[in-house]
Design a protein around this nucleic acid. Sequence first.
DNA 1: GTTCTAGAAC
DNA 2: GTTCTAGAAC
Length: 699
Amino acid sequence: MDGGASSDSRISPKGKEEESNRTVLAILVGPPGSGKSTFCEAVISASRRPWVRVCQDTIGNGKTGTKAQCLKGAVDALNEGKSVFIDRCNLEREQRADFLKFCGSRTDMHAIVLDLPAKVCISRCVNRTGHEGNVQGGRAAVIVNKMLQNKEAPNLNEGFSRITFCQNDSDVKEAIKMYSELGPADKLSPGEFGKKSKKESGQQSIMKFFKKSAREENSQKEKEGGSSSGNGAGNEFPTLAFPSISTADFQFDLDKASDIIVESAQDFLKRVDNVRLALVDLSDKSRIISLVREKVMKKGIDSNRFITFVGDITMLYSKGGLRCTAIANAANWRLKPGGGGVNAAIFKAAGEALDIATKERAETLNPGSSVAVPLPSTSPLYQREGVTHVIHVLGPNMNPQRPNYLQNDYTKGCKILRDAYSSLFESFASVACLERNKKPKLAELKDKTSGESKNKENREEVKSRNQNQTTTTTTTTSGESKNKENREEVKSRNWGSWALALYNTAMDPEKYKDGLLEIADDFIVLNDLYPKARKHVLVLSRLNGLDCLEDAKREHLPILKSMHSAGVKWVKKFLSEDPSPHFRLGYHSVPSMRQLHLHVISQDFDSPSLKNKKHWNSFNTAFFRDSVDVIDEIEEHGSAKLSGEKLLEMELRCHRCKSAHPNIPKLKSHIAKCRASYPPHLLQNSRLLSATNNDLNIS
DNA sequence: GTTCTAGAAC
DNA sequence: GTTCTAGAAC
């Protein structure tokens, strides 16, 4: 920081009489979660000067307050000779203007800008509301980000005599100290303090993060003896390739659309560093591409960070040498493959895996929103193109032949299209953040620069790397054919001694019988030693050699079925004691403990043993394979689908409402309260068992 | 699978 | 300073 906020500041009053009665009206400027109320409270409790906090959230006595009420509150306090904090977001100039009318001989106008990283504000919002209301998880992010999009930093020419900018907690602390020490007769020196040098941004931590990653990558490159920098620098950035949304089938006006693309992109790139956007179109005669190019040029957007690209969005790397972290899909609202255009092409190129992964994420999509779907490493798009995520996005429809036609209402249409792009870019930012967190895999590829003649060796490299991955992590997709070659290698597993506890129990149950709930001929039921929910038991196969789900084949169907019905029996027993919980029965794709075991687990996940991301994701991503599906798949294909351990690294999402949470404690406090209905996928095929579940009465 | 702990993030 | 994560050892 350039030391600003600290640079004090107090000027002792010149002529005591005239100056000592001066009041201060300080307008706090910052999004939800930036700490405005905390700021006010800290100053008020420590200050010798009489302050009044005028807060729009509380002024309405339970109802949402209005700006008018705030204005009146401020006038009253100032008339009583008190100084005032205006505690509302005040991010836009217009919002602040009315308060500045008080600027007069007796009142000094101050702005205090809490320009903290958006990420920090979002996580505080999540924490604060925790549960109900709309400001939680992903929504908090959307709301805060949206507000920040329109923010206008206060300027002295609005009528402020002093503006204090705070970019981090220590700036805030100093500002609090400064205002706290402001006695009734003191005056703070006028001017701007603590303003950031160049770009202003609420995304500091994300920017820092990307900068750091880029540095690391560069230094690694140097170590490898690679070329230093040059014009290709942009090639290192995580890149989002996206088609123009709504302008093909949905017939959105091209001129308007190109404005929105350029403005949204510029906005995004301003806030997030070291990422790149690429607008892609199939044809070099594309009108949208030329319009966008023109506007990008006019606006002077960095050509390393925003590019237009002519080519097939499903073959950007293999055919065009353009490496993209994520590609956007102009999806339909049902998120179904097919149809035509980009949607059909992407689903086709990504294979069945994308369809499955999409279904796990969402059933439908609203216009103006997006959903990021991680691509399984088996998808051709991942292997061949290095794409880790497909982000489905749905724009407005201006085509009368298609559903949800907007009847030429471009006010609505433009808004939805803007929302669509901003949602798309936000999704990409979190994807890029996630990918960066992992050890760079594809980034290891030493490609020189762009060049259309992307050499074959590189592609071979990608391929072999991914093959290696499949052998070590036992990731598979569709059925038996896939992993035949790998099987021998995978077969010899190294189980640590700690991983044999279940195996030993299964082989010699009598020895451990005190701790067991049930011993049958082919299975054992026992409480999980470290339950991850209030009810969590294991149905353990007794068959030697059946180590894990990967080993389960058609010949094991009888035992799988008998384990399943044992599980259901125990669920019934638990429900007869307490009918409230829901249960799932399933296997981990890659278990830590040897000997096939079926988890029977209540969906409260209320347990001190549930401590980390891996715990959560092992029960709440596709890593957890429902017993019913496993049986179906083995009956049909001879083996069950397995998911890779990559899923265990995914961001934390509520298993009911699917909101995202920054860490385990916050997730846990959320799920303790979330009563949203379960995702539709779980409500089918008896994947979720409860007291009201009819299937329980029959089987 | 857990525990322990360094150090990152807050 | 405290909270949280993630990697190593078992």
